[in-house]
Simulated scan of single mutants.
Amino acid sequence: MTALAVCLALCAAITAATWILSVVTKEYSWVDRIWSIAPVAYVWVFAVSSGFDARLVLMAALVTAWGARLTFNFARKGGYRPGGEDYRWSILRGRMPRLGFAAFNLFFISIYQNALILLITLPASTVADAGGSPLGVWDAVLALVFLAFLVGETVADEQQWRFHAWKASERAAGRTPTPGFLQSGLFAVSRHPNFFFEQAQWWVFYGFAIAATGVWLHWSIAGAVLLTLLFIGSTVFTESISRGRHPGYDAYRARVSAIVPWFPRPARAEASVAVDR
């Protein structure tokens, strides 16, 4: 079997397993639980199949670092524990009819998202098909940029982790946390910096296909494009929840870029915007 065939078979098995587990357990975060693990396996399949081509090994090492960070962050938030379902799924279930959500679970959560997880790794297929070529300056640049984005996402997640720990301590002390959502650090220049860095890493990953071939456009760009579209939809849905929970969120939205970090706009004089400590 070719490396791509192995990955397709593995993806089909994971898709079936995550859907069956979601039906049996009535928890719908099984794809979330393998999101940081499956890409590592897929890219290493290509690296091993190539006879450990230097570029593919570099790509696999970077994805392994990405997966380790994401797995750690997901685990410390309780994502792997029973009941560790993403809170947004329960909200979405309440907004959809039962059969509608069942279809959504099968076709979007299980099939589409698992296909997307495979797609974002397939620049490795383009690199493998290009044949072995020596690493160059652009590979070094891409690796450094990937690692910079990895650090950025780590910082964003740590800031979010500490903020939610502070909120929990405030509630435990009988106080109402104010503000109710994070607005400082990286969240002062992007409402979702972790979303930005996550997408950016996979666009850089696609860059290795360009470095290997010298051609800018390949079919394997589809993964990065579809991932960006997924995050746009996720941002809209997540913010619809935040706007209902936090009265000051619209003022925050008016000031701060949605995803791409950028200079915040001045607050309106009549708006009173709380600043996170």
Rank of each mutant, 00 (worst) to 15 (best):
L150V: 07
A148E: 02
F108D: 04
A200E: 00
L118D: 00
F163I: 02
V225Q: 01
V43M: 02
S242P: 12
Q201R: 00
P179V: 07
F195E: 01
V275N: 14
A156R: 00
P179Q: 03
H246C: 09
A211Y: 01
S49I: 10
V273D: 04
P193I: 06
R81L: 15
A54Y: 10
Y206M: 09
P177L: 10
L150G: 04
G248D: 04
A16S: 11
Y87F: 15
V256P: 05
T18P: 04
T235V: 12
V273E: 08
A143P: 08
A269D: 14
I210R: 00
V155H: 09
A211W: 01
Q183M: 12
F149M: 10
E85P: 10
G79I: 12
A47L: 03
H192D: 02
L106P: 03
V63F: 14
N114Q: 08
V215L: 09
G100T: 11
V189P: 11
G132C: 14
A143W: 03
F46L: 02
G84T: 06
H218D: 01
G248H: 05
Q160Y: 12
A60N: 09
N194E: 03
A156T: 00
A271Q: 13
N114W: 12
Q160C: 14
V225E: 00
P266M: 10
R95M: 15
V127C: 08
E153C: 12
F208V: 04
V273H: 07
A12D: 00
V23T: 11
L56A: 05
S234I: 05
L226K: 02
F195T: 05
P82E: 10
W30D: 06
L99T: 13
T71E: 08
F46Q: 00
A115N: 09
T213W: 05
W35R: 00
F181E: 12
R245T: 03
F187Q: 06
I20G: 04
S36C: 15
Y206W: 09
P39C: 00
I120M: 08
P266E: 09
A173E: 04
A103S: 14
W138F: 11
L62Y: 07
V57W: 03
A156I: 01
A47G: 02
A209I: 06
S234N: 05
Q160K: 12
F263R: 14
P179F: 04
R268Q: 09
G248V: 04
K167Q: 08
R175N: 13
A3S: 03
S184Q: 07
V127Y: 11
D129L: 10
W35S: 01
I34W: 03
A140I: 11
Q113K: 06
A65D: 04
L230V: 07
T235S: 08
F205M: 07
G185H: 02
R191N: 03
V45M: 05
Y80L: 11
D276K: 12
L119P: 12
I232H: 03
A165Y: 13
S257H: 10
A271D: 15
N194C: 11
P39D: 00
Q160R: 14
P97N: 14
E27I: 08
A168Q: 04
L99H: 14
L58R: 07
L58N: 08
A9I: 06
S90V: 14
V275E: 12
F237E: 02
G174W: 01
P266I: 10
L10M: 08
R33Y: 04
R253G: 15
V189T: 11
A130G: 09
